[in-house]
Computed example of a mutant assay.
Amino acid sequence: MRKRLGWFVAGGLLVAALLAGVVSSFASSSPDGLDAAAREGCTFDADDNITGGTCMAQQEQDHQMKDSPLADYGIKGIDNEYLSTGLSGILGVAVTFAIGGGVFWLVRRRGNHDEHENDGDRAASGATSA
């Protein structure tokens, strides 16, 4: 049973890594629905800078992590846009899997610990299991 679960997890991880590493390079660079709604009411020049009008995008500010190594869906220092985006996607999958796996491991371990405590309580009270 464990071997089948391992193959299932490995397969899912491979599919997620392929999607994040390869398919993400083909994502549209056009604004999504939220960006499009925030830009309504403004006018833009050829370089996509706001030149007039009134819209939510005028209040836009850089986020606090703008200079981090993984800002803007890429890895800073890698000049190839497709490679940078793909590697950052794969890194994101790996980090998410590691955090999720760690949480599941802790929860499972905690559950085993609680079961052993209950077994000890039964033994101390003289109860027998059927």
Rank of each mutant, 00 (worst) to 15 (best):
G33L: 11
G33R: 13
V93E: 00
R110Y: 12
D48F: 02
A127K: 02
T43P: 01
Q64P: 14
G86N: 04
R108S: 13
S84T: 10
F97I: 03
G126E: 09
R39K: 01
P31A: 06
F8A: 06
P69T: 04
S24V: 04
A124Y: 07
R2V: 12
A130Q: 06
R2Q: 14
A98V: 01
W105S: 08
L70W: 08
S84M: 05
G21C: 02
R109C: 10
S30W: 07
S88A: 07
T128S: 10
H63D: 15
R4T: 15
E40I: 04
F44N: 01
G126T: 01
N80Q: 07
N118C: 09
L83K: 02
M1E: 14
S29Y: 09
W105E: 08
V93M: 00
R39Q: 07
D121H: 11
P31Y: 02
V95W: 09
K76W: 02
D72Q: 12
S125R: 09
E117T: 13
Q58Y: 03
L91K: 08
I78E: 00
V107I: 14
V22M: 00
E60Y: 05
M65C: 12
T51V: 08
L34N: 11
A46Q: 12
A27S: 11
W105V: 06
H116P: 14
L70M: 09
E81T: 13
N80E: 09
M56T: 05
E40M: 04
R122T: 07
L5A: 09
S29Q: 08
V22L: 06
G77W: 00
E81N: 14
R110H: 15
F44E: 13
L19C: 07
A46F: 11
D79G: 01
R122P: 03
G53C: 07
V107C: 10
S68P: 13
A37M: 09
H116W: 14
L14I: 03
G101A: 07
D119E: 14
G102M: 05
I78R: 02
A94V: 05
Y73K: 10
F44L: 05
V22I: 03
G100T: 03
S29T: 01
Y82Q: 09
S28M: 11
A94C: 08
V95G: 08
R109P: 10
R110A: 15
D119F: 10
K76I: 06
S28H: 11
E117M: 15
T96A: 10
F44T: 03
T85A: 09
G21D: 05
N112G: 15
D67Y: 04
L91G: 10
L83V: 10
L14W: 05
V15N: 10
G92R: 04
E117P: 11
C55Y: 00
H113L: 14
F104D: 01
